[in-house]
Computed example of a mutant assay.
Amino acid sequence: MGLVINRSLLSTRRLSVNLVTYPEGHRVRRHNDPMGDGSYYKLNFVVIKPAEGGIFKTDGAIFSLFNRVILFRPDLYDHSVSTIKRGKRVLLSIALHAPWGSATLL
C-alpha cells in the first residue's frame, strides 16, 4: 500500500481544508471520528476519481451528488472507502468543528 499524501491548505481551531491523495491499493476501514463536544461536519469533493474502486460509503450523508460531492457528519456516522484497485483518489476535504449541537444521535 502506497503513502497517503495529506496537504493542509488551511488549519484553524474550527476549520480545516486538506488536499488528500490516496494511492492505488489504499483503503479506509470503516470508522467514525469522535470529536467530544459540538458537531463535526465534512464536505468532501472527489477531484480525481480512481478508474476502479475507491468508493466512499457512509451510514448517513446529509448530501451526496454522484458520490463526488459529499456532506456528512463523521462524528455520528461510520464511513469507509473501498480499496482503490486502479488509479488514485484525490480529495479536497473541508472540515468544520462547530461549537453547537451534540455528537449524539437523536
Rank of each mutant, 00 (worst) to 15 (best):
F66Q: 13
L91S: 05
D59A: 09
H97F: 06
I62G: 04
P50S: 09
N67Q: 09
H79A: 10
S80L: 11
V47W: 07
S11D: 08
K42V: 11
R13H: 12
V46A: 09
A51I: 01
E24H: 03
I94K: 04
L91Y: 01
R7K: 15
G2L: 03
R86V: 01
T21Y: 04
T12P: 07
L65T: 00
L65K: 08
I48W: 04
S64Y: 03
I5N: 11
L105T: 07
F45P: 01
L71F: 12
F72R: 10
K57I: 04
D59M: 06
L15A: 10
I62M: 08
F72D: 01
L92P: 04
P50R: 04
I62H: 09
Y77I: 00
S39K: 05
L15T: 13
H79N: 11
R13A: 12
P34F: 05
M35T: 14
G60W: 07
L106E: 14
R86T: 01
R29A: 10
R29N: 10
N32T: 14
F63Y: 15
H31P: 05
K57Q: 11
P50H: 08
F45M: 07
D37A: 14
P34I: 13
P23C: 01
N32K: 14
N67H: 05
S8R: 01
L3F: 11
G36W: 11
A61Q: 08
V47K: 13
S39Y: 03
G36D: 06
L91V: 15
A51L: 14
R30Y: 09
L76R: 04
R14F: 06
V20Y: 00
R27G: 06
P23D: 03
R89G: 00
L3V: 10
S80K: 02
L10H: 11
M1P: 05
L19Q: 04
L91F: 01
M1R: 12
N44H: 10
P74W: 07
K42T: 15
N44G: 13
Y77F: 15
I84T: 03
N18V: 01
L15E: 12
W100F: 15
V69D: 02
A98H: 13
P99C: 10
R89W: 10
R68I: 07
L43A: 13
T104A: 13
L65P: 00
R86E: 03
D59H: 10
P34M: 07
L10N: 01
E52I: 03
T21W: 01
R30A: 08
R89T: 02
K57A: 06
S80F: 02
Y41E: 06
L91M: 14
G101S: 05
I62D: 14
G101I: 00
R29Y: 07
A61E: 12
L65I: 00
S93Y: 03
H26A: 15
K42S: 15
T58H: 07
I70A: 04
Y40F: 15
S16E: 03
D37H: 13
G101K: 03
G36R: 15
K57M: 09
